[in-house]
Amino acid sequence: MSTLSRDEVARVAALARIDLTPDELDRLAGELDVIVESVARVSEVATPDVPATSHPLPLTNVFRADVPEPSLPIADVLRSAPASEDGKFLVPQILGEE
């Protein structure tokens, strides 16, 4: 298993959209390295013949009827918005889109 370097932590933090201070980066790199090393033991027993379990109980086909329910009232929708305008959520400019 690879170790979790400071650069790797910085890359992952960017992927997770979390600003970290240089101190936080230093500390997390050390801590996470230890944790990852410890948890990586799972691969010892995770042999190819063992199926993965993603749901604790084996349910399938849980469907909802296609019947509408009323919308949340607009006042409730926008009440907690940090900013809104014209019934819409106001967000800072979005890059990466024309």
Binding site: R64, D66, V67, P68, E69, S71, L72, I74, V77, L78, D86, G87, K88, F89
Partner: peptide, 27 residues
């Protein structure tokens, strides 16, 4: 063209007033 959304019972509509066809799930 279902009446409701993929994962919640908010109406699937076109051209309504903004944010008036939403549920906690679709928000």
């Amino acid at each position: 063209g279902t009446r409701t959304k993929m994962f919640c019972p908010a109406e699937a509509v076109f051209g309504e007033e903004p944010n008036t066809a939403v549920s906690p799930v679709s928000l």
